[in-house]
Design a protein around this nucleic acid. Structure first.
Lengths: 344, 344
DNA sequence: CTGAAAGCGCTTACAG
DNA sequence: CTGAAAGCGCTTACAG
């Protein structure tokens, strides 16, 4: 017959006739050597047989370490996040930590609420994928001395560690590719300027365009309201209105690129014959679109791993100075880019 | 200057000159009325000012309720899960619960390990999206009396609650649609038979085919090794080899359907002109494929909500009998289905 | 090498 | 209405 209640150290100790502190020492590999081999073996055996699993929460209360890390996402439905999560989980698990992931949305008030929940649950640190360039949430974490590292998006002041992709390089690769194909009228749909990714990719676009000495009439930038397919579609419409004769679009991310696809289809334009499109992120399945999307691959899994590692370091040494890890992106050329249509 | 350590009830009580049990009563809305209004107001005010958040872990230790629920996923990279997670999170949050989601993979040994971790962290119940028709993990939960409800996939014995979609109906809708278009040679790529979804959808396919009195030569089934794009591509190849003249494929899920797209493209076949394809799940962005995928939409968000609700109920009343909630799916007709090519 | 004790931060019967 | 006390399940100095 299965037991009704969960076993405790005391239950087990009573069964074996030792003090429960001895059982405690045996259950923890680090203190196991303090106990005589034969009694340790017996305790382990009974623990195994009875399926005893020490209460990590009680232990955490005593040791002041919950083994919990909060992961704050702006939008779990964005397919970039699953691989990042996988990377986070992998390194946390190695250290006996477990992530609590929450979908915090875009609203700072709600984010703050959600973080308070996490802090109330004694998370030892926070992984923030929600940061803006000036982020009140990060101010809050800093003030409360909650270890936090930002993922993918950084803040301007650089007061906390973050793991990002090299957005300037990414846009250089993008524009180089487009120019090499012969494009001379290139539009950029930037992500929100309040986000470091939106801001830096736009900067990268501008730098790249200057490097190629393109005249002011040769490029144009519009900003999407958000990183979403629908916002991409709308921004694409504005871009066409502002910038007739455009032959290529560098989209702020893949969702925006998908919005461009939607717009093009609705307006009977053919990609890449009429217009080339480049995305950003290489999120899952964009290779299955028609045409397969040329995009910038960012090392998402590693991004998660590195961020988790940095956070664990910071939890271990709270005073350590912030570090920024910049990962190297890669242009993945697929079918959505081609030479511009011949002028007639 | 920010405080170094987290505040406790005692810290706050000392500051206000009341007993800490009084502070405790005020912090909990349910017991607040036991305290005089004026002192309650004062305590609340100071708590707010100092940013005090009671330690939920300590409270949980005392009350034997962690407020934690484990969510066990086979593969977080599958885009069906984010919306399910969103549904789960929404209802859990209402009740002050928080999910811990883990990516447990397909291996039962690893799943067991992961669940032990969760149990050690005192989760009050488990939401399993990993169930097979005969699932050792579920045996384990039942034996340990861990409240558990299955999502999307059920077990044959029906010993635990689950929330699924009506797979028989789904396949009936699929086959009806294909037959109505004029198809008379229809293949099905089933998901793994060890999973209830794979098994039931295949059953549904067989029932539907019989209802239409299709002769044995008019249909064919092959089984994919897993619910993945690559397994779908391989199974598609086998299906074409086994079943020449096929004009339509009912895929076990959208990932498998994407594998079919891959196969068709590689072999110069055109969908839907040469062959129609129907998916299952309506996962995000399959409307952006070319052609947009005709598929069965399952109410994923609601699936998450219902499962979380059932689990909460079961946590509240552990003895209650298992219930199966069957949600109604809907066929979403898009561009991947059309009448079969005219015979020549 | 093992035991006895204190204490992590709470909740909640029990007094008063 | 408020306080004092016990106890949730652990860990870990401190004795012996």
């Amino acid at each position: 017959m299965p037991e009704r209640k969960r076993l405790t150290l005391k239950d087990l100790a009573a069964e074996i006739n030792v003090h429960y502190s001895t059982v405690s020492r045996v259950m923890n590999p680090a203190t196991r050597h303090l106990v005589a081999d034969d009694v340790a073996a017996r305790i382990l055996e009974v623990a195994e047989a009875r399926g005893f699993r020490p209460n990590r929460i009680a232990a955490g209360l005593r040791t002041q370490r919950s083994g919990l890390v909060g992961v704050v996402l702006p939008d779990i439905a964005n397919p970039v996040f699953p691989p990042i999560l996988a990377g986070i989980e992998a390194v946390l698990a190695q250290q006996g930590y477990v992530p609590i992931v929450v979908n915090a949305g875009l609203d700072k008030v709600r984010q703050r609420f959600v973080i308070d929940q996490l802090v109330g649950r004694q998370v030892e640190g926070l992984l923030l994928a929600t940061a803006e360039r000036e982020d009140p949430i990060l101010d809050y974490c800093l003030k409360q001395r909650i270890p936090a590292v930002m993922i993918n998006r950084g803040e301007d002041a650089g007061r906390a560690s973050c793991v990002v992709s090299d957005n300037l390089l990414a846009m250089r690769l993008t524009v180089d590719h487009l120019v090499a194909l012969g494009h001379r009228r290139i539009g950029h749909i930037a992500g929100p300027a309040a986000l470091s990714t939106g801001y830096q990719r736009r900067e990268g676009f501008l730098q790249a365009v200057r490097r190629h000495r393109l005249r002011r009439e040769a490029w144009q930038v519009v900003e999407a309201d958000s990183y979403s397919r629908e916002a991409g579609r709308q921004a694409c419409a504005r871009l066409f209105a502002d910038f007739p004769g455009m032959t290529a679009i560098a989209a702020g991310n893949d969702l925006i690129a998908m919005g461009c696809y939607d717009y093009l289809r609705e307006h009977g334009l053919c990609c890449p014959a009429d217009i080339s499109v480049v995305g950003h992120n290489d999120m899952p399945f964009v290779d299955a679109l028609t045409p397969p999307l040329t995009t910038v691959r960012i090392p998402v899994h590693q991004m998660g791993e590195d961020a988790a590692r940095l956070l664990l370091q910071q939890i271990g040494a709270p005073a350590s100075p912030p570090v920024t890890v910049e990962l190297v992106p890669e242009l993945i050329v697929r079918g959505s880019t081609a030479p511009p249509p011949a002028p007639h």
